[in-house]
Simulated assay, not measured.
Amino acid sequence: KTSVARLLARYLRAFGVLTRDRFVEINGLELKGQFTGQTVHVVKEHISNAMGGTLFIDEAYALVDHSGGDRFSMEAIRTLLTEVENNRSNLFVVLAGYKEKMDDLVASDPGLARRFSNSLHLANYSAGEIAQICEKVAGERFELAFSEGLRAKLEAHIAAEHAEDIPEQNAALGINLTEAAFRRLAERHVRDGVTRESAAGHELTEEDYAVGVPVSRSPRAPHTLGG
């Protein structure tokens, strides 16, 4: 989501629509104040910080209050709508989040559909693409290569054990798996007495990614029917 938003921002900047190379990324919860009167100030401050550039609001659906006890939610939404309208020629605002939850957000106020009339749905990554992300993160962040044949085996492992994680995590799944693999590699080096100097040139293996090891998940609570 963030990468696509950054590309769109660069495009708009290149064509002179935006006047600054400014990209402000926040979470939807950050637009809510903690006491009466603070929310308006918080929203305006974030808008001001992004002026001339892009304001990227991830998990924007956090602005919706389903409990009915959060009096700051609608204040944040209405202030955001006002600021977007007042600065529509000098600000690019992106609301991001999971489709179903974003649909709930848009339905919460008619003004959202009017102000944010363009939407882009990004399909989930495939297991193969997640495996590619793993290899990319391993090389760029940890300067580690994959052992021969690891990517194909990792793809099959992700498809078998992490299919339900992909919609929730997407690219983050590849990052998390690789960080966990790096920790296992470090633990293996400590166990085997491998020094930092002799570790140069080592590769990530199936063992590091726990390929073939079933993922342990907490059992979900059973659904109950009220009588």
Rank of each mutant, 00 (worst) to 15 (best):
I166N: 03
S117I: 09
A199N: 01
R115S: 15
T205Y: 07
E161W: 00
D70L: 08
N124M: 04
R196C: 00
R151T: 12
Y61R: 11
E59G: 12
R151S: 13
E100W: 01
L154I: 12
N86H: 10
F116P: 06
R183W: 02
F116A: 03
E83I: 03
G69E: 13
E83L: 10
N87S: 15
M102S: 05
L112Y: 02
I77K: 09
V94I: 15
E59P: 08
R191T: 11
I133F: 05
E168S: 12
A186F: 08
G193K: 03
G128S: 07
C134L: 11
A199R: 03
Y98E: 07
H66N: 12
A113G: 10
H157W: 03
S73I: 09
S198M: 02
L173W: 11
G201K: 00
A181T: 07
D104T: 13
E100I: 05
V106Q: 02
S147W: 00
N170M: 08
R115N: 09
D109S: 08
N90P: 00
A127P: 06
F146P: 06
E143P: 00
Y125A: 04
L122E: 01
F92R: 05
I158W: 01
N87M: 09
L63V: 12
E100D: 15
E179C: 05
V93E: 02
H66K: 15
E148V: 02
H157A: 07
G201Y: 00
K136G: 00
F72A: 13
V106L: 15
V64A: 13
T195V: 03
K136I: 09
A107S: 13
G193W: 02
V93R: 05
G174W: 04
R78P: 00
D192A: 15
N176F: 07
F116Y: 04
N86V: 01
V106Y: 01
L204H: 04
R184S: 02
A156I: 01
I166W: 01
K153S: 14
L81C: 06
L120F: 14
H202T: 13
L91E: 10
R78V: 08
H121E: 14
M74G: 12
G128F: 08
T82A: 14
R114Q: 08
F116S: 03
